[in-house]
């Protein structure tokens, strides 16, 4: 059964196809309003999430389908000790497709290995979050019109930030990409991501601790939150949490058409004063995420029929 666990499960051609479908949905939403009639999406959310769960639910409803599921582990059989494998088998009897978020890394793969319906990874701990990357990609495509020959700055928590790893993996497959990795020493991109996604492919990258230094060269600035939940040491979190705060002053040296992205939720790493800047695209990203999830649900349900 075709599932989406990691963004690299999709080929470049398939990504292009999803983007084309999403653009078509944006152009003519009525055409898709009944595409998933009588189909059910099960949203299995073992940990809290506002935007991802609601985005999946909105996507399915806009396709004419319906939604079942739970939004926290305490309201599911997991509270009684049921395994992910058993839950996936049971839900396969009720629904046509699953979107699952779970705090344990690799949980989505376990679900996919046991379900008889498509499984979409809606975040498995600090591991992968491929549909956020789909949202990022559609936003870049709509703002820049291409994925090649762009300089992408990734700023903040590059160590634990799963969205950063997935985005680098996805974009590193296109020609002429350059990456600027902006982080404190303690939150640098893990060496295996650098090796697999950048060094082995001969992709140019620069590591710096200075956002100001990087700013003028960027076509895209991807800001991330320093995630409190990933730190065992609270003192270290408090020391690093305000490492980078994007303000209108810092944007003075940025290109006029630079695109600012953020997977959200934001805490304070982007000043609200930046929200009115035409380069701020993070709320457009949220909307684009819904369109890409619609395109993905359609693709996986279509492939399940075969």
């Amino acid at each position: 059964m075709r599932c989406l666990i990691d963004i690299l499960d999709l080929s470049v051609a398939e990504l292009d196809e999803l983007i084309a479908t999403a653009c078509d949905i944006i152009a003519d939403p009525d055409k898709y309003a009944e595409k998933c009639k009588r189909k059910k999406l099960a949203t299995l959310f073992y940990e809290p999430s506002t935007r991802t769960r609601l985005s999946f639910e909105a996507a399915m409803l806009e396709l004419g389908g319906s939604v079942i599921g739970f939004s926290e582990a305490t309201s599911s059989s997991a509270a009684k000790g049921e395994s992910v494998a058993d839950t996936a088998k049971v839900i396969s009897c009720y629904a046509d497709i699953i979107a699952m978020r779970h705090p344990k890394e690799g949980s989505a793969l376990v679900a996919a290995n046991n379900a008889s319906i498509p499984v979409i990874n809606a975040g498995d701990g600090g591991h992968c979050h491929p549909t956020q990357t789909l949202a990022d990609l559609l936003t870049i495509y709509r703002e820049k019109g291409r994925f090649d020959h762009l300089t992408v700055g990734l700023c903040g928590d590059l160590k634990f930030g799963r969205t950063v790893h997935s985005l680098i993996n996805a974009l590193s497959r296109y020609p002429g990409m350059r990456f600027v990795l902006i982080s404190p020493e303690e939150l640098k991109l893990p060496s295996y991501v650098k090796t697999e996604a950048l060094k082995k492919k001969g992709i140019e990258y620069l590591q710096t601790t200075s956002l100001e230094e990087a700013m003028p060269m960027l076509d895209i600035l991807y800001m991330t939150r320093i995630q409190q939940e990933r730190f065992a040491d609270m003192d270290e979190y408090l020391r690093l949490k305000d490492s980078y705060v994007l303000t209108p002053e810092k944007l003075k040296t940025a290109k006029p058409d630079m695109c600012i992205l953020h997977p959200l939720p934001r805490v304070n790493e982007i000043s609200v004063k930046v929200d009115d800047d035409p380069r701020a695209c993070y709320f457009k990203q949220v909307l684009n995420g819904k369109y890409m999830r619609m395109a993905l649900i359609l693709k996986l349900l279509e492939e399940a029929k075969k």
Partner: peptide, 8 residues
């Protein structure tokens, strides 16, 4: 944090 730590 791996699922192998909890899954039966």
């Amino acid at each position: 944090r791996c699922i192998t730590k909890t899954e039966q």
